[in-house]
Design a protein around this nucleic acid. Sequence first.
DNA 1: GAAAAATTCGTTTTT
DNA 2: CGAATTTTTC
Length: 711
Amino acid sequence: MSIDFENELNEAQREAVQTTEGPVLVIAGAGSGKTRTIVYRLAHLVESGVDPSQILLLTFTRKAAQEMLNRAEMILGRSLHGTSGGTFHSFAYATLRQNAMDIGFDNGFTLMDRADSENICKDVKDSLKLGKGDRSYPRKSTLLDMITKSRNKELPIETILEREAYHLNSYLDDLNEISDGYAHFKRNHALMDYDDLLFLVDKLLTENKPLRNQLQTRYRYIMVDEYQDTNLVQARIVKLLAGDKGNVMAVGDDAQSIYAFRGANVANILKFPQIFKDAKVIRLEKNYRSVQPILDLTNEILKGATIKFDKKLYSDLKSNHLPEVVHPLSDQSQAKLVVDQILEFRRKFSLHDIAVLFRAGYQSFPLEVALTRIGIDYQKYGGIRFHEAAHIKDVLSYLRLVLNPHDLLAWQRALDHIKGVGPKTVAKIYKAIHARDNKYLGKMTQKHEQLGELLGELNKLRATPPKPSAILESILAFYQPILTEKYPDDYPKRQAGLEQLSQIAVNYSDMEQFLGDLSLDGDPEEEKRKENAVVLSTVHSAKGLEWSAVIIIDLVEDRFPSRKAMQRAEDLEEERRLMYVACTRAKKCLKLFVPSSVYNRASGMSEPTLPSPFILELPDTVFDRMNESYGGGLEQRRKRGTTGATPLSRPKTNESETSTTPKTDPSKLGFCRHKIFGKGKIIARIEPNKCRVNFPGFGLKVIIEDYLELI
DNA sequence: GAAAAATTCGTTTTT
DNA sequence: CGAATTTTTC
C-alpha cells in the first residue's frame, strides 16, 4: 500500500515531508497541519526504506511523541517499533543512564523533581545560616527559580536579577552562595535536576567523540517539534546529534513561544538557517483547524504585539457565529455559566471535544466544584502532577531507599513519618547508618519502634526480587497505616492514586526506568483522553491540542495576564502569545469569560476586576458581547456603531504611563497607579479630589487624585 | 533543645 | 490550600 501524498497534503506540507535530506526548518502557523506533516514524514521515511530505529523524534511531551508515532503507524499499516521518541529530557535521561560511568556517576544517579530541588535549596540556605529571621527573604521556590533561570539562559545570576528581578538585587551574594552549595550537594549525593540532564548530555556528547559518532550514525533522521520553545543547550544537543549537515527537521512557530520563563530562546528558531547552513525554510500558513471568525479574532491578538509577526492565518472554514465575550457578575456565577455553556455544547459535541482553559491551575477550582455537583466528569491537565502528590512521594521515597541508601532526601521523607523524629534526628540517624554506628541505631530503634519497623521493611525489600511491582506491593502494605494516620480526611482518594501507581509499576521490570519515567512523564494512563469527560487545562498544557469548543475563563487583569507578568514588557508579550495559543485551540466555538468580580483570598471578599487588556483591545467587530443580568440570565449587549476598539495600554513603563490614561468616571472605584507606590486599589473617594488607596506593600494611603493615574 | 501544634501569609506557567 | 513562622509541649 502506498500513501497518497498528493491528496492528503498541500504543496508546502508535501515539500516538508519529501525533503528528507539536509536541514529543514518548518515555520508552521497554528492549526496549519504541523502534526500532520510530522506524521506523514515519519511514514514517508519508513515507506522509503529507512529503518525506524534510525529516526529520532523529539517533542515537548511524551504524549505528543506517542500520538505521532501511533498515527504514522496507522497510515503506514506497519509498526514503527524502534523509533526513539520523547522529550529532550527523557532522551537525555536514557542516554545518561547508559553512560553513567562516563560522566562520573559510577553508581548511577537519582533524578529529583522540583520539590526535592527546592528542599535542597532550603537546606543549603539554612546550613549557610542565611536569611535567619528575615521575613522578606526569598522563598525557596524563588531561590530555585533564579538558579535554574540563570542556568537555562546561561547567564550569571547577577544578569538575571538585573533584568527581571530587580527587587532581589540585595540577595545577589546569597544567591550565588546558595547556587554553589546546591550544585555541591547534588554532586555529593548523586542527584540530578531537570537542567542537569540537558547540560550533562551536552557535555557527554561534546567530550565523548566515539559516542557522538555512534549516535550521529544511528540517528540519520532527526525531527524536533516545538522548536520555538527550546533553549540554548537543547539547540546544542540537536547540533551535536545531527552533525554539521545532518538530516534534521525543526518545526515550530515563533508566535507560539510561551516558555521564555524557563529559558526558551526564540532566537533558536530564527537562527536555525544560519546554524544549519543551506537549510530549506518552508512555511505552512493555511489553517485547517478553525473557522474564519475565530482566526479574525486571533489575528487581532497578534496585531497588538510589539514585535510584529508577519503572520495572518486564513481558513476555508466558514461560520455564521462570532466568538463571544461573556461578562459574568462574579467568578462564582462564571462557574455556573460555564457549566450551562458546557451543557449546551454537549448537544453538539462530545464532552472530550470541549475544553475550558485558564492561566493558572487554581483558577479552575470553583468550576471543578460546580461540575462535580452537577455530575459532569472532567479531566484536568496542569496544576499538581500525579507524582508530586505527597502520598505518592512518600511511597516512592521507600523505593528510592531500596535503590540508593545514600539518598538523603528519601530518608528525610521516610523518617518524617516517625513520631518524635524531626530534621535534627534525621540527620543523626542518617549519619549513624553510614558510619555503621549500630550502638546509636540500637538505642534509637528502642526509643522509636517505628524506626525498627522501617529498617526491617527496607531489609526485607532489598531481599525481594527487584521488580517494581513486587516491591511496591510490599511498600503499600507497610505504608497503609501511615496513610490513614496522615490523611484522615481524604485517604480514600489518595489510596486510589496508590493503586494507580501499582498499575503503572506492572509495566516495568527496571526500577530506575520506572522512577525516571515517573518524574519525566507523569502517569501514562492519565495522558489518555477520557471518553466522557470535559477537559480542564492550563494554557501551557493545552499546547498542540485542539477542541471543537473552547472556553477561556478569568480573562481579567492580574489573572490573565498574570499579575507577575505586568511589570516587564517581555513578560506581557509572552502573555499575549499565550492568549494567542489559547484562542487558536478552538475549531468551531470560542467563548471568552470576563468576570466582573473575583474572590480574593487575602481580603476574604469579592473584588471588582478590570477586563484583560487582550479583551479591551479587540475591535467589537470580531466578537459578540453577552452580559449576565442581575436576574442570572444572559443578554446580548448592543454594539455601538463606532469602532469600539480601545488601544491597548502598552507595557507599563514610566514613559508610556501618562499617554494612555483613559479618563474614567471619577466617582467610580477601580485601580490606579502612583509614581512611588505603584499600582493600588481605590477603596473610597474622599471629599472633592482625594482617594483612599490600598497599595500592596505600602498599605492604605490618602492621595490627591491628581497624583494618581487611573488604569 | 527539639518536635508538634497553631497561626499567618501569599498564590504562574513546566521538563 | 500549602508553606513558613511563631507558640506550646515534651
